[in-house]
């Protein structure tokens, strides 16, 4: 469904991605794990067209994305939950959700989807008229996910959904991801919290300083000694549970 072939990208003269290849098949949950500055966010920005790649090929559902604007790419059925949530702070919760469906042709159906979404996430209904900036971090994360779902994406991408959240909220966010997976949503999940990510993912890639150094099924990665040492912090208490 999504394929990256030797993608290079960067800011100014600084290369961040030094040739990345990965793919996501329909119905799969794939995670991209790595530390700070590994190039995880850059990868998602390159896919979305916010940072057009210099070299390589990005393909989604048979269509090349390299030179498309973010608006066009999003309209093809990609949705991103950006790092740090980035909700529209002064707009109401329901306005945020409506904007998630901005590019859709079927605005009537979108309005019905909004109702369903609010049934599913009662907090979004309770706070419907409140400015999004007044929500807690975890609530904003749920809003950001809801906003992305309003686009009815064929591929949902999330950038560090657990970042900065209280452990209880991390659990809640990952519960949502698990439900989405069970409903058959295709997901590309970027995480620093490898432990949490590998629990929902089918497969994963490990990114380090702009290169993919390892890939495999979630089970394989969990067992890999290198991953255990660097990302799962064996010897520390499991925090997220």
């Amino acid at each position: 469904m999504l394929t990256l072939k030797s993608v290079q990208a960067g800011y100014g003269r600084l290369p961040v991605l030094k040739g990345i290849s990965l793919h996501v098949r329909p119905g799969e949950v794939v995670t991209l794990i790595g530390g700070n500055g590994a190039g995880k966010t850059t990868t998602l920005q390159a896919i979305c067209g916010l940072l057009p790649p210099r070299k390589g090929l990005i393909e989604f559902a048979g269509q090349e994305l390299n030179r498309l604007s973010p608006e066009r790419i999003v309209a093809l059925g990609l949705a991103l939950v950006p790092e740090g949530r980035r909700v529209f702070r002064t707009l109401s919760v329901s306005a945020n959700l409506e904007l998630g469906a901005f590019h859709r042709q079927d605005q009537k159906q979108a309005r019905r989807d909004l109702g369903e979404l609010q049934e599913r996430f009662p907090i979004l209904k309770e706070r419907s008229r409140q400015p999004a900036g007044t929500l807690s971090g975890g609530e904003q994360q749920i809003l950001a996910i809801g906003r992305a779902l309003m686009a009815r994406p064929r591929l949902l991408m999330l950038d560090e959904p657990s970042m900065g959240l209280a452990p209880r909220m991390v659990t809640q966010v990952y519960e949502i991801l698990k439900e989405l997976k069970e409903a058959g949503t295709t997901i590309l999940l970027v995480e620093q919290n490898a432990r949490a990510a590998l629990k929902v993912a089918d497969r994963g890639y490990v990114l380090e300083t702009g290169r993919i150094i390892l890939d495999g099924t979630a089970a394989e990665l969990k067992e890999d000694p290198e991953v255990q040492r660097a990302y799962l912090g064996k010897g520390y208490r499991e925090v997220w549970e």
Binding site: E71, V74, E98
Partner: peptide, 23 residues
């Protein structure tokens, strides 16, 4: 209105607005 909210979204956060498919 939809377009009114989209204008506010662009004013608040241009990149995220683009991710919503707003031109």
């Amino acid at each position: 209105t939809r377009y009114g909210k989209a204008i506010v979204a662009c004013a608040l956060d241009r990149d995220t607005a683009r991710l919503m498919g707003i031109n």
